[in-house]
Amino acid sequence: MAGTGKSADRKTGKAAAKASATEQPTAAQRAWLTRGLDQPGGKLPLFDLNGQRVSTRMVRTCLDKGWAEPWFENPLKPDWLVCKLTVAGRRVVGGD
């Protein structure tokens, strides 16, 4: 099919970057993203401060907005998203 592939991916990435420049994270998103500022490579936690697993929906929203990106596959828990902050994510939480 013509029109799909890398150019479509680039458009999605640009749309996410544009959205992240105008939108602000919710309090929960901001708290999660901020925790990555002090971690090596900007690694974002899988669990909140109470030991509960971070909401997959929130993680996916941050991925869609370009504030986080997948880092690597977890071979022990393949359904868990191991993510790290993006440059846009650092900007949105004030961690330039």
Results as ranks from 00 to 15, higher is better:
1 M>I: 02
1 M>Q: 05
1 M>H: 08
4 T>E: 12
6 K>Y: 09
7 S>W: 09
7 S>Q: 12
8 A>N: 07
9 D>H: 13
9 D>Y: 06
11 K>H: 07
11 K>Y: 04
12 T>K: 15
13 G>M: 13
13 G>P: 03
14 K>R: 15
16 A>V: 08
17 A>K: 08
19 A>K: 15
19 A>E: 12
20 S>G: 00
20 S>D: 01
21 A>V: 07
21 A>H: 10
21 A>C: 08
21 A>T: 05
22 T>E: 13
22 T>D: 11
23 E>I: 11
23 E>G: 10
26 T>W: 13
26 T>K: 11
27 A>M: 12
27 A>S: 15
29 Q>W: 04
29 Q>S: 04
29 Q>R: 09
30 R>L: 13
30 R>S: 15
30 R>F: 14
31 A>R: 07
31 A>V: 05
31 A>F: 03
31 A>K: 12
33 L>K: 03
33 L>F: 06
34 T>L: 09
36 G>Y: 03
37 L>A: 12
39 Q>P: 09
39 Q>D: 07
40 P>E: 09
40 P>R: 04
41 G>R: 01
41 G>H: 08
41 G>V: 06
42 G>V: 04
43 K>V: 13
44 L>W: 01
44 L>R: 00
44 L>D: 02
44 L>Y: 00
45 P>A: 03
45 P>G: 02
45 P>N: 00
47 F>C: 00
47 F>Y: 15
49 L>I: 04
50 N>Y: 09
53 R>H: 12
54 V>R: 02
55 S>Y: 11
55 S>C: 14
58 M>R: 06
58 M>F: 07
59 V>L: 06
61 T>I: 05
61 T>S: 14
63 L>V: 01
64 D>N: 08
65 K>L: 15
67 W>I: 02
67 W>N: 06
67 W>E: 07
68 A>F: 00
69 E>N: 06
70 P>E: 06
72 F>A: 12
72 F>R: 13
73 E>N: 11
73 E>Q: 10
73 E>V: 14
74 N>M: 00
75 P>C: 02
75 P>Q: 05
75 P>L: 08
75 P>K: 01
76 L>S: 12
76 L>D: 13
78 P>Y: 01
78 P>I: 00
80 W>G: 03
81 L>E: 09
81 L>R: 05
83 C>R: 01
83 C>I: 00
85 L>R: 02
87 V>W: 11
87 V>H: 14
87 V>K: 15
88 A>F: 11
89 G>M: 05
90 R>W: 03
90 R>F: 02
91 R>W: 03
94 G>W: 10
95 G>W: 06
96 D>S: 15
96 D>E: 15
96 D>Q: 14
